[in-house]
Every structure is written in structure tokens, then in C-alpha cells.
Amino acid sequence: MPVEVRLPTLLRTHTDGTASVAVDGATVGEVFQALVTKYPGLGGQLVDESGALHKFVNVYCNDDDIRYLDQLDTKVADGDVLSILPAVAGG
């Protein structure tokens, strides 16, 4: 089930500049694993040491923030769009 993953400019240095990648997976976590297999430089950028979504990363499945769904266990379907964005914050 290909899912489209849209990457922020920050992470495109790890994907040879590619902004959008189609990968397979039944959950967000599986999609991320496939993404890291394809682009190993993304390892550690999306998921922290404990295996949870990185604190400074926002992930939206279509228009829903996956923190309010099932996080990395959120199910995805063919044609879904996962958008990854850095949290934008400061002081």
C-alpha cells in the first residue's frame, strides 16, 4: 500500500533533495521504517531512542495530527499523505 510521505526541506538533505517519497506500510511506524531503509540518513530524525515519535516532529496523516490518533500505530491506507514538519518554537 503506497503512501505518499512529504518531507520538509530540513530532511531533504537525507533524501537527495526529494520532497515526496512513496513507500509501503500499514501504519505510520511501518512507513517510517520503510523510509529509513530507503534513506538511512533519516534514522533518528523521526523516532527517538525509545521508539516513540520524536518530540520535535509533527506528523499529519492527511489533515490529522497523529499525536491525536494512534501515534506511530496510526493506520494508513493506499493514497494517504503523511506530512512531516518540524515543531516551530522558540523564545
Binding site: 509533527n58 514538519l85 516551530v88 522558540g90
Partner: peptide, 16 residues
Amino acid sequence: ARTYTVDPSDLLRSLR
């Protein structure tokens, strides 16, 4: 008055 975080839903709306 000391920190900011762009509201995540506004972030998505802006991106789209």
C-alpha cells in the same frame, strides 16, 4: 510572553 510554539493545526493549514 516568553516563548512561542506555532500552533500545530495552523502549521498544517499554512503548509497546505
